[in-house]
Structure formats: C-alpha cells, structure tokens
Amino acid sequence: MTREALINLFLFLLLPVTAGAAWLLEEPFIITLTTKVAILALAGVGLNIALGLGGLVSLGHAAFFGIGGYAMGILAAHAQSFDPLMEVTFLIEGTKSMPVIWLVAVIAGALAALAIGALSLRTSGVYFIMITLAFGQMLYYFAISWPAYGGEDGLSIYVRNGFPGLNTLDPIQFFSLAFGVLALVLWFAGRLAAAPFGLALSAARQNAERVETVGMSPYRLRLLAFVISGAITALAGALFADLNRFVSPTMLSWQMSGEIMIFVILGGVGRLYGPVAGAALFILLEHILGGLSDFWHVYLGILLLLVVLFARGGMIGSLAGRAVAHD
C-alpha cells in the first residue's frame, strides 16, 4: 500500500467515524458539519475531473452547483405549493423525492455544462478561465433578476426532501445518504481516471498535439470531461440545497466557484481524495478560525497563499510526495 493509498483510506474513514462519534455523543451540529464536508467534497470531486484530470481551470463551477441547488428548490417549491410546473400538453408536477431531484439536477447540470463547455472550450488558457467565470456570472445575474423563484432572496423549503426508506430529517441518516453518494462518486471518479477515457484526457492535458496525432479529438475529450464534471457538481448542489433547505443566488456566485476550487487545491490537484481533504480542512478552519476572529478570511487567504507558493500539490501532495504528474 502506498502512502497516498493509506492517506486516502484515512480520509475515507474520517467522515463516517467523525459523524458516528458525534452521533454517539449526541452532537447533531457536528454531524451536520460532517455532512457539509461530504457534500462540498462531492462538488470538489466534480471540479477535479475537469481541473485535475483535464487541466481545465474552470472558475465558473458555481454555475453547476447553483443549477443543482435550483433544481432542488424549484421542484420542491412546486411540490409544497401543489402548483404544477407545467400544465400545457404535459402535466409536470413538483416533487419532494430526492432520487428524482438528483436525476433532474444531474441532467440539468450536464446540459448546462454541455452548452457552456462547447463555447468555452473553443478557447484555452486565460480566456477559458475568464469565460467560465463570465458564464457563471451570467447565471448569477439571471437568478437575481428572475423574480419567479425568489430572485435575490432565494427559495426556502419547509421540510427536507425524502428518500425512500430513510428519514432524511435525522442528521445521521442524511449524513449516511450524502456520504453514500460521495463514496459512489469517488469510486466512479477513480475508475474514470484509470479508464481509457481518463488516460486519453490526461494525455490531452499533457500534450494535446500528440493526442490529436493518434486520432483523438482533445476538444471532445475535454467537453465530455466538462459535462461529467458539471453533472457531479450539480448533484452536490442539489444535496447542499437540501442540507440547508434553502437555495439562493449565493450558490451561483463566483466566490462559490473560488471556494470549490480552494477545496481542490488545498487537498491537492488531480488527487482523487484531494477535495475530501480540502473540504474537511476548510470547514475545520472555518470553525476554528471563525471562532477566534470575525476576520478569519484573512488567515484563510494567508494560508492559501502559502500553500500555492510553497506547498505545491496541496495537503496530500505534501504528505505523500509526488505521485501524479504536475504539469
């Protein structure tokens, strides 16, 4: 077992052990925090497929996170007001069922990523960063100015959505659900990186000309990676909105994109468990530093600066050494 595999195992067990201990000690707040880590890590795993594997520096992933959140918000709001989404030709009603909401979130996230990716991937480098940022802002302002679903105030849901066989209002059960999704997606992302598609994508990141010469299209590889990445981040968004029972344009803001990116970087770019480590560290810092000072973002900024300048490869990179190619 390599050192990185050991660290991964530790990180994988960290969340359920923390939540389990908090459950035994009857500390529901800690369980909720751990759930938040699992969900934010999920968003980071999504971004990491584009960022780490594909080398696509997207500063607009909040768009997909927010789309997932609004998929949950809109469906659940229609369900709780018994007002169908659509009556003409088809009858489409809202729903309070998580599996349906997740499906809608994933499809909506994938479609948005397809549209944004198809345009943005025509460019590269700095242009790509700025364009993904701009598309994210476009959705943000759209959400603010569109009055039907709460506009700037967002949407509140009275009762958390349901999952067959579980009581999602019980913190430990909702945590198990979120963690189950995270574990499934981590498994999927690990398989994806090792699959021919993942290898081709990594090759396109390292040397696009060579990939093109052997007959594959880097544009298509990247677009597919971007779509998968967007879909996973949207799923995380739906869960995050359900955790808070609230969705607002803040989920679409570019600070959110920055935060998701911070999870990935703090943990380690291109490392499968990087986002888990990053999200856990971020939430931990938020609560330790946030308790010490109202201005904890200063310390977060300084820490982030130090990681970028001196600890390339993030936490996992510093602990496990260079295992993945950093280019």
Binding site: L51, V57, L59, G125, V126, I129, G258, M261, I262, I265, V269, F295, W296, H297, V298, L300, G301, I302, L304, L305, V308, L309, R312, D327
Partner: peptide, 28 residues
C-alpha cells in the same frame, strides 16, 4: 513576482487569496 513562471491555476489561486486578505483587511 513569484507567480510569473507559474501556471495560470496558481496565479488564479494566489490572487484569489490576495482578495480575501485585502477585503477582510479593509473590513478590519
């Protein structure tokens, strides 16, 4: 000046960190 020969990702993150420091510092 430590960022000129880094890739864009490092530049984005380091300058994002600067935003956090500047904003909270000004608020302080």
């Amino acid at each position: 000046r430590r960022l000129y020969d880094r890739d864009h990702l490092d530049q984005v993150l380091a300058t994002f960190a600067l935003i956090l420091i500047f904003s909270e510092g000004t608020r302080w």
